[in-house]
Design a protein around this nucleic acid. Structure first.
Length: 639
RNA sequence: GGGCCCGUAGCGCAGCUAGGACAGCGCGGCGGCCUUCUAAGCCGCAGGUCCCGGGUUCGAAUCCCGGCGGGCCCGCCA
C-alpha cells in the first residue's frame, strides 16, 4: 500500500506539524499531549521546555504566529505554563473521515519507514499434553502481536517450535509405545497423550521415591521422602480415576521393566541420533497431540505459518553439533564430567557483550549447562541453533520469542551464545518477549502432575456462561446464531481479560473475572461495536460521500479526536510491543461512544448534524472492529 | 545468599520508559434512567498515607538510594 501519512494518519500528521513548528522556534523537541477537559485538545508543557531561555513573550508570540498558519489549528492559549491548542474540528473531521472512507477496514494501518521481516515464535507448547491457561496467555499475545506488527507494515511469520527432542517427550513416548492410540477412542488426542504422560510420570516418580526410601531406611530425610511419596500416591490415584484401564496397563508395563528410566533415556538418545523406530514413535505421538492443539487453536482463531520440528531444525541437520563445536573454540565453554557448561559470567566480564547488547542485569551470572554427560543436548543449546536457523534460513531481521518470564536466564544465554559465535547483530535483534504466569489460586498447576485447567475446558465454560447470559436477557436468536454469539462473547471476555493486563503482571485466574460480560470487558467493547453497527444498518444514507462536517457537541469532538488518535496508537503499541494498550484504548473508545450513544441521537438528527454523526459512528465502528481484530476478538453485528 | 518482576481505593487494573495542570478506570456498595438508534448500556454518590523511609527537583505515583511485602529464576527439566 503506497500511502502518505497525511492520508493514513491525518491527526498524527497534524501533530507532527505542530511539533516541528514549535521546534523551529525554540530549538527543542517538545512533548505534545492530550489536554485536560476544558483546556483545548492538546497541550505542550512549554515553560518547562524553554526554561532559562528568557524572552518568553517573544518566543510565545512567534510560536502562536506560526501555529496559526497551520491548517487544522483553531486556537492557542497559554495557561499556567502550558500551551493549549484547540483544533479546527471541521478540518480534522474532513481529514479523518476521508482517511476512514479511503482505507476502510484498514484504517489504523501505519507503516514504519523501513518495514522488517519479523519472525515471531510463540506457544511452542510441549506436544505431550493439552494446552492450559498458561499457554493461552502466550498464544493470545503471540497472535495479537503478529496482527499489530502487520498493521505497522512489517512482514510477520508466525512459528510454532515443536519441541520433540526433550526428555519429557521420551517419557510420554515411552508410555505411548506401551498403549498406542486405539482408533476406537473418542477422546481428544492431546488429552489422551497428556494422561499417558502424567501417569508414566507419576508411576516413575513413585517407583523412584520408594527405592530412595528403602535406601535411606531410617534417619535423615525419611520423613520428607515419605510425605512426597504420599503426595504422588494421591496424584496417581486421581489419575487412575480418569481412566483405570489405561492407568493399570501402564503400571503393569512399568512393573515389568527393570529400569524404565534408563529405557527412556535410551529412547531419547536414539531419537537424537535419528534412529528410525524411535523417530516414528515420537513423531506419531507428537502429531496426535498437535492434531489436538489445532482443534483448540481453530476455536481460538489462532494459526501458524510454520511448524518447526526441533529435531529437524536443530539436531538432524547437525546445526546443534556445529554450534557446540564452534563454541568449544571460545574459552568460556568448559567440560564438567562429560557435560558442557557455558560460563556466561566470564564472557560478560571479558568482552563488550554487556554494552553491545545493552544488558542491565547486575551481579554474577550463573553458568548454564548445555549438554548431558551422555552427550545428549539440553534445550538452551538447541535454541541457539534454532535462533541461527531463524535468522539465516528464514532470513529474519528480527526474531521475537514469546516465552515465559521463568526462562529469562536461558533466553539471555541464547543471546550471549549468539554473540560469542559472531552473530552479534542477530543477538541484538533477538527479543525475548516475556510474560508472567497465569495462576489459579488454590492450586499449583502442573502438567507433570496432570493438574491444570485446559483451554478446552475454559472455552466450554465461556460458551456456557455466555449462553446463560443470553437466556437471562431473554434475547431471541436462531439456534445457529445463539451458538455463534455465545462463542464470540464468551471468548471475547476471556481474551480481553488476559490481553488487557500488561504482560509483566501475574494474572490470578478467576472464573468470574475472566468471564465478566460487564464494563471494561471484551463484551463491553463488542456491545459498543454492535450499537454502532445497528445505527449504520438503519441509516438510509450513502456514507461513502464527502460531507460538510458539523460538530456541535463536545462529545462529538472528543470522539473525533479519539478515533483520530488510532493510527498513532497502533504505531506506538506496535513499536513498544504493547498489546494491552490496544485493549485499553478500545475500552476507552467504547465507553466514550456509549455516552455519545445515550446522549446524542443519530438517526433522528437532521441535515449535516446527522451526516456528521453517522460518519463518526462509522469511524467508531471501523476502529473498534480493527482493535478487536488485533485482540483476536470477534466483532459481531448483533448480540 | 544473588538476580529479575510486581506493590496505586475493600477487590481487579491504567498512569511510571521521556517528572508538571485536580491520581484515573472497572468490580463491589448506595441512589437514579428502558413508549425514543439493542439497558451486555447511561448518569450520580461514597471510597486513596500512589508499600515505607530518605534523596534529587520550583515540582515525584513517575527519577536515584535504602528498606518491607509478594512472585519468579539461580536443574545434566523446558
Amino acid at each position: 500500500m503506497d500511502l502518505k501519512k497525511e492520508v493514513y494518519d491525518p491527526l498524527g500528521y497534524l501533530k507532527e506539524e505542530v511539533k516541528s513548528t514549535i521546534k523551529e522556534v525554540i530549538g527543542k523537541e517538545i512533548e505534545l499531549r492530550r489536554a485536560p477537559k476544558g483546556l483545548g485538545d492538546y497541550a505542550v508543557p512549554l515553560v518547562r521546555a524553554i526554561k532559562g531561555q528568557g524572552e518568553l513573550e517573544k518566543l510565545l508570540s512567534e510560536v502562536s504566529d506560526k501555529l496559526s498558519r497551520v491548517s487544522g489549528i483553531s486556537r492557542i492559549e497559554l495557561v499556567r505554563g502550558f500551551l493549549n491548542i484547540s483544533l479546527n474540528y471541521r478540518e480534522v473531521a474532513k481529514a479523518v473521515f476521508k482517511s476512514v472512507d479511503e482505507l476502510g477496514e484498514r484504517y489504523g494501518y501505519n507503516p514504519v519507514a523501513e518495514p522488517k521481516r519479523i519472525l515471531i515464535e510463540f506457544l511452542s507448547a510441549n506436544p505431550i499434553h493439552p494446552l492450559h491457561i498458561g499457554h493461552l496467555r502466550n498464544a493470545l499475545l503471540g497472535e495479537a502481536l503478529s496482527k499489530l506488527l502487520r498493521l505497522r507494515g512489517h512482514s510477520v511469520e508466525k512459528h510454532f517450535y515443536v519441541n520433540d527432542a526433550g526428555l519429557q517427550i521420551s517419557i510420554a513416548a515411552y508410555g505411548f509405545s506401551k498403549v498406542g492410540f486405539p482408533s476406537s477412542l473418542k477422546v481428544k488426542p492431546d488429552e489422551y497423550i497428556g494422561l499417558i504422560y502424567s501417569c508414566v510420570n507419576a508411576l516413575l516418580t513413585i517407583r523412584e521415591l520408594k527405592r530412595r526410601l528403602e535406601y535411606l531406611r531410617e534417619g535423615e530425610g525419611v520423613a520428607e521422602v515419605t510425605s512426597e511419596l504420599d503426595e504422588w500416591t494421591a496424584i496417581a490415584a486421581k489419575l487412575r480415576e480418569r481412566d483405570p484401564v489405561l492407568f493399570d496397563k501402564l503400571a503393569d508395563e512399568l512393573n515389568k521393566e527393570d529400569d524404565p528410566k534408563s529405557k527412556i533415556a535410551e529412547l531419547n538418545r536414539r531419537f537424537e541420533k535419528g534412529d528410525l523406530e524411535a523417530v516414528r514413535l515420537v513423531r506419531d505421538m507428537c502429531k496426535l497431540v498437535i492434531k489436538g492443539f489445532n482443534l483448540t487453536l481453530r476455536e481460538l482463531g489462532i494459526s501458524f505459518d510454520s511448524w518447526d520440528w526441533e529435531s529437524e531444525v536443530t539436531l538432524w541437520n547437525g546445526l546443534t553439533e556445529e554450534v557446540i563445536n564452534r563454541l568449544r573454540r571460545c574459552k568460556y565453554l568448559r567440560s564438567e564430567g562429560g557435560s558442557l557448561v557455558l560460563d556466561g559470567d566470564s564472557a560478560i566480564r571479558d568482552t563488550t557483550i554487556k554494552e553491545e547488547l545493552g544488558l542491565t542485569r547486575k551481579g554474577p551470572l550463573p553458568p548454564l549447562t548445555l549438554t548431558r554427560s551422555d552427550g545428549t543436548t539440553l534445550y538452551p543449546i538447541r535454541d541457539v541453533a534454532y535462533s541461527i536457523w531463524k535468522f539465516e534460513r528464514c532470513k529474519a531481521d528480527i526474531v521475537i520469542n514469546v516465552i515465559g518470564v521463568e526462562q529469562t536466564l536461558p533466553q539471555l544465554y541464547v543471546k550471549i551464545a549468539l554473540w560469542l559465535l559472531g552473530y552479534k547483530e542477530e543477538a541484538r535483534n533477538l527479543i525475548h518477549y516475556s510474560y508472567e504466569a497465569v495462576k489459579v489460586p488454590g492450586y499449583r498447576m502442573s502438567a507433570r502432575k496432570g493438574r491444570f485447567i485446559s483451554v478446552d475446558e475454559l472455552i466450554r465454560e465461556a460458551k456456557n456462561r455466555a449462553l446463560m447470559e443470553i437466556e437471562r436477557r431473554g434475547l431471541s436468536y436462531t439456534t445457529e446464531n445463539v451458538g455463534k454469539i455465545a462463542k464470540a462473547v464468551g471468548l471475547g471476555a476471556i481474551k480481553y481479560a488476559i490481553l488487557s493486563v500488561a504482560p509483566n503482571k501475574v494474572i490470578n485466574f478467576d472464573w468470574d473475572r475472566a468471564l465478566d460480560f460487564n464494563r471494561n470487558s471484551g463484551p463491553f467493547v463488542q456491545y459498543a461495536y454492535v450499537r454502532a453497527s445497528s445505527i449504520l444498518r438503519k441509516a438510509d444514507v450513502d456514507l461513502t460521500i464527502d460531507i460538510e462536517p458539523h460538530l456541535q457537541e463536545d462529545l462529538e469532538r472528543e470522539l473525533l479526536i479519539e478515533v483520530g488518535e488510532w493510527p498513532g496508537l497502533v504505531a506506538k503499541a506496535a513499536d513498544e510491543l504493547r498489546v494491552d494498550m490496544i485493549a485499553n484504548y478500545a475500552y476507552n473508545l467504547a465507553k466514550l461512544f456509549n455516552t455519545f450513544y445515550e446522549r446524542l441521537p443519530v438517526l433522528s438528527a437532521k441535515g449535516d448534524v446527522k451526516l456528521t454523526r453517522l460518519k463518526l459512528v462509522k469511524c467508531v465502528k471501523t476502529v473498534l472492529g480493527n482493535a478487536l481484530n488485533i485482540l483476536g476478538i470477534e466483532a459481531p453485528e448483533r448480540m
